[in-house]
Amino acid sequence: MNLAAIQNAMADWLRTGDPASADHFGESARPGLEVYLNTYRMQLLQCLAEIYPKTLEWLGDERFYAAARQHIMAQPPASWTLDAYPASLAANMAGLCPGDAVTAELVQLEHALDACQTAADHAPLTRAMFTRLDWEHVVLSPAPGAQLLAHHSNAGAIWSALAHAQPRPAGSTTADPAHILVWRSGWVPCFRVLDSDEAVIFERLIQAPMSFTAACAELEQQLGQGAAIERAGLLLARWADEESVCASEVQYPAT
């Protein structure tokens, strides 16, 4: 066997545990192949358990590890970084636990909370900036790692109950989704349910930076002119206090 053939056979062995792939290496290689297979699978299981502790607690060891094992067989890792692997479980959970929207959204929330921890750093909007900025030229962008999740279940409430070791609510779903913003404040991952007018703004912010005047126009459309100004002030204060938004001035007229 040349190098490529050795590597393909060994990769097949790890992906499948199929004895036919092990046969290429001879009987004496069997104990070693078992060590490599065990290390490969244990590392992935540990990685998923570490990133998804709340989902593990919610499902219990047996169901979580059964889903994780099934996932590892169905979707082995492909990226150079192990950090990329947990995302695939979050994407696949609806298929692994059919009809269980609560678990699918809980794992999605945990993934967003994990992913924001290594997102690029940006200085957040602060109250001290309120009087310094020329708001005609301010462009808003979401905080590091911000994601907007549309949740039909009470996964957020379950996450919080598990985080605070409180009695967990029963899983439930609703027809209308709640908009959950996940972001990083300093080094701390956060999430909360957005008000509906905020959700419209964040839906746009997540796509691309947005001028403050455009955000005000959005509010005006929803609330009318007078109420929009008051609401904009209140939202800016909220976003500054929770560090969910970044703001910078641009010299050209903002759109």
């Binding site: 190098l3 590597q7 393909n8 490599y36 590392q43 492909a78 150079w80």
Partner: peptide, 25 residues
């Protein structure tokens, strides 16, 4: 060592044969 083939990453340090083919590569 090697860790991956196209489309699959083992995230483990897998062994190489000490051959002249491997040395060249």
């Amino acid at each position: 060592c090697w860790t991956r083939v196209p489309g699959f990453s083992s995230h483990d340090l897998l062994p190489l044969p000490c051959t002249s083919e491997a040395l060249d590569l």
